[in-house]
């Protein structure tokens, strides 16, 4: 059995984090849970401690989703986990479908498995400009990495040890999901996707400010462009 760690980055998620951990405990008690409290100002940390089912790493200030996830990757490597799952704290990611991600990963023909939102009933409708921006970038990234990924920005994903080692070394600061796939590809690793159905938000307002569409496009576009010309050290691959 591979050792699996579910990493939940949380920034001011006191309303939902407890339920997410409870759902994980009831569906997959064999998975360990790690919450990265990314400098929350609310009672996120208390809620996590109250569950008694999750390890808690608290960042002294808000690093952003990329920096928070990378903290989790480093933890996973140091604690000797074989597989890490990234899962949102707002309850939209279907924790009951994590075993499908793990199962797909254990076929050993991919290093990252993405849970793709073919059916997105998230109750969150991004602005038109942002949707267009995301769609253009998504196609660009998909083309760059050789196709096969329709939802490049989904943050619901499973990673094996090789992918974790790449990401622990290099992971983008903000809006990391799409760029991470390019980094992965440049390091000679492979991503696949399986369809999942997202849950609607459990309550509260989203704490994630939708990025300005133009900034998002330019920032991620530039980062990806630069990644393509970077000399990458290929990870010494061996069986995980």
């Amino acid at each position: 059995m591979p050792r699996v760690l579910v990493i939940i980055p949380a920034y001011n998620e006191e309303e939902t984090i407890g339920d997410v951990i409870a759902a994980l405990r009831s569906h997959s008690p064999e998975y360990n849970v790690l919450v990265i409290d990314d400098g929350s100002h609310d009672r996120t940390a208390e809620r996590v401690r109250a569950t008694g089912h999750a390890a808690l790493v608290r960042l002294p200030y808000n690093l952003g989703i990329g920096g928070a996830m990378q903290t989790g990757f480093k933890y996973a490597i140091r604690q000797g986990y074989d597989i890490a799952i990234q899962c949102d704290a707002d309850g939209q990611h279907p924790v009951e479908q994590i075993p499908s991600l793990v199962e797909r990963l254990s076929r050993n023909d991919a290093d990252v498995v993405i849970g793709s939102r073919y059916v997105a009933d998230s109750g969150y409708t991004p602005s038109l400009s942002r949707r267009i921006g995301k769609s253009i970038l998504s196609r660009l990234v998909d083309a760059l990495i050789g196709g096969g990924i329709t939802d490049t920005t989904s943050g619901f994903r499973a990673m094996n040890r090789r992918a974790l080692e790449v990401f622990a070394d290099r992971y983008p600061d903000d809006y990391p999901e799409a760029e991470a796939l390019v980094i992965l590809h440049m390091c000679g690793l492979r991503a696949v996707e399986i369809p999942v159905t997202m849950h609607p938000r459990k309550g509260g307002v989203t704490s994630i400010k939708p990025p300005h569409a133009a900034y998002y496009m330019v920032k991620v576009g530039l980062a990806i462009f630069v990644d393509l010309f970077r000399t990458t050290k290929r990870t010494t691959s061996g069986e995980p």
Partner: peptide
């Protein structure tokens, strides 16, 4: 960023 992550992991 690296120091911040390291401090958080050590604190844990």
């Amino acid at each position: 960023r690296e120091l911040t992550q390291e401090v958080a992991l050590l604190a844990h």
